[in-house]
């Protein structure tokens, strides 16, 4: 029983970690590629064009 509980909690921690990494990654991609906020757009302009993100 104890073993099962530990295994199950380890597994849900893994899922939480994976979800956190994916959400953080998507957030960075959004900031670098999608955000239309003025300063963000300007500093990311060339990398967006060169990476193939729709820019403006």
């Amino acid at each position: 029983m104890t073993t099962k509980t530990i295994a199950a909690s380890g597994s849900s921690t893994d899922i939480a970690t994976i979800a956190f990494a994916a959400v953080l990654g998507l957030g960075l991609i959004f900031a670098a590629g999608f955000s239309q906020a003025g300063a963000m757009h300007d500093v990311a302009h060339d990398s967006r064009h060169a990476t193939g993100f729709p820019c403006h």
Partner: peptide, 25 residues
């Protein structure tokens, strides 16, 4: 301007790397 391009590339590629590593996991 080019310093901005370097910085935003690093941000974007760490983002791609995080999503890929989540896929690895």
């Amino acid at each position: 301007r080019h310093a901005g391009t370097l910085a935003m590339n690093v941000v974007a590629w760490i983002g791609f790397g995080l999503v890929m590593a989540a896929g690895f996991a």
